[in-house]
Design a protein around this nucleic acid. Structure first.
Lengths: 186, 186
DNA sequence: GTCTATACGAAGATAGAC
DNA sequence: GTCTATCTTCGTATAGAC
């Protein structure tokens, strides 16, 4: 009984990378096997329900990363603008300056949406709510703050799509530079 | 030799609908066959290179629609704001108020991007350029106009993703209501 | 131009040895 | 926990009749 060569979390990270590279439908057991270095049977040991379980694991891996690197930026002891800048920087790193896609996009297309949309709705909703709370701190009414937070997430996701289509990260980089400004109404 | 039951253009429209429903990888010859009412062999008669040809046909079908319903709004004899409102309304119709996705998103994911990204880059670039030209008419410098046009397209694509994830068209509808304002700096 | 039938490999999933 | 081997179904594509 050999020790596992990879922790479940490391496996999930590699699965996430493959889903981001190929999309949900585009990733196959063969490509996921290659990405993790595990045989198909080993993958089924970790994920008894196959590809959908792997999709869930990828979403959880994103959740862990956001919980460790993104959300904490909003709880720091610093002015709102500084926190939002750090938040924006954390997102830029996660999306590799706009060169890597978001599961919120990939996992809501076609039948993948039937499995993952509810989960993603909660996630995106939570993110918008957390951003809005920071904006409210600066004296903005709740309703307007929510609108701005939603606009900020809209801009981020849109810039990922546009960057991908134009083949340059410039739109994403520019959008994330303006991210705090959008939220603070500057 | 029976006459074709559908024109090539009608076939392309149905193929487009199926790709928007399922994504590029998610659409299969079986689903495309069902969507068009044609057998697989008939599809290969129209599209000898199979699925990639059908993807190209879907892109061309979008091009026809935009050429007929979207781009002409910018050439009308009316004030810039009125033209931009009509442009925004035409987009809203094409995206069914935010409930149907954009091929710019779907066809740049995974290996589909290898086939279609260059085409989509030209398309999106042309759209941004056309919008920027209208903004320039209102006295805005070219560089700033291009930025606003890009921002407007970013907002539109982002609102499609966010609407899909949240399961409501509200973000798209709100974004398209502000579409002319973003371009005119209001 | 459309159909039925079919070839062939890929995809998801499982069996069972070690 | 990982592997090889295998099963079944699906996906793409073609052959050939009408």
């Amino acid at each position: 009984m050999p020790a596992p060569s990879l922790s479940r979390e490391e496996v999930a990270q590699r699965i996430l990378a493959e889903f981001r590279r190929s999309g949900y439908q585009g990733a196959t057991l063969a490509s996921l096997s290659e990405a993790t270095g595990l045989g198909k049977s080993s993958l089924y040991h970790y994920f008894p329900n196959g590809k959908t379980d792997m999709g869930t694991a990828a979403l959880e891996a994103v959740g862990v990363w956001f919980g460790e690197h993104v959300m904490p930026t909003l709880a720091e002891d610093a002015p709102a603008e500084k926190r939002l800048k750090k938040f924006s920087a954390a997102l830029s790193e996660f999306y590799a300056k706009g060169s890597k896609p978001c599961l919120t996009d990939l996992f809501t297309i076609g039948e993948a949406g039937e499995f993952f949309q509810q989960y993603l709705k909660q996630r995106l909703g939570g993110l918008i709510k957390a951003l809005a709370a920071v904006v409210v701190e600066t004296g903005v009414p709740a309703e307007e703050a929510s609108r701005r937070a939603e606009d900020a997430m809209i801009a981020m996701h849109g810039s990922l799509v546009v960057s991908r289509a134009l083949g340059t990260t410039a739109p994403f980089v520019r959008t994330m530079r303006n991210f705090p400004g959008v939220l603070l109404g500057q």
